[in-house]
Design a protein around this nucleic acid. Sequence first.
DNA 1: ATACCGACCTGTCAGC
DNA 2: TGCTGACAGGTCGGTA
Length: 295
Amino acid sequence: VPELPEVETIARGLDRRVSGDTIESVWIGSRKQPLKSPADVIALTLAGKRIMRVHRVGKHIVFDLEGEAQTGKRTRSGQPRPAASRQRSDRRRSVAQAAQWVVHLGMSGRMVVSEPATAIRKHTHLIAKLDSRRELRFIDPRMFGKLSVHPGGFDPGGVEPLEVSREHFVALFRGRKTPIKSALLNQKLLRGVGNIYADESLFRAGIGPRRRAAAITQERLGKLHAAVREVLLEAIALGGSSISDYVDADGEQGLFQLEHRVYGREAEPCLVCGTAIRRLVLAGRSSHYCPTCQK
DNA sequence: ATACCGACCTGTCAGC
DNA sequence: TGCTGACAGGTCGGTA
């Protein structure tokens, strides 16, 4: 489902609904795929914690938790301490360092806030019961999503497309022979841009998806910088793109799919010049572009 | 070091 | 009706 605008929308919705609430207990299903941290570490880290804030980093939803941050840390001897002693000693340094719970939704993941009476959907992998009696549920049919906890800070690398300066943005692509579309999707460079917004940004900047990044002029890359910002900000304002089943934390659909100019429009006329939009497979992903407007 | 390509999963939809 | 294959908003590891 989610690229930067969808994750931003979901994170804002979650922040509004669960910030200040405390996680009372955690149930984790038996499927291991979505877990990047061991299940017991996730459960131990979340249980009893107050959610201070929910925000977005790249395509990740980040829950800032109040309290102990050293879960899973081993003693000098390398042996894990008993849970009881771990809790006691960690609570003392809880003020200094807060743990983060990080959720990546993958292709099909959802985080929803539900009333306890709401039926538990198939493919629910985690339920966090909150003090308010509501539940945070992580649902992910394809299991490409990832759940992890980070005692210290979480840093996935890459720069935020909405924060990076034009100069820094241009420098990201210097010397890269990879197609510009692949570079845009590389989360170690720019974090948060996915297939839809890469295609839409390249269209607005007039750049063909296969152009080698290093071969694009600085001026044109400057246009791309502006296009990426513009597309992401418009999409956030419209609550993201709902292609098949994406909904935000309140169950509302996004509207940006109505503004797509190339994505999902193969064979339809370009809205600028009328040429049929083409689709090609690049780095295993569908890429949509106008052969006339994009060079 | 860099860059494609399949693998990881389930669900849906078009075509036969 | 059902079967098959293509495809889906993402990332990772192996291989060239």
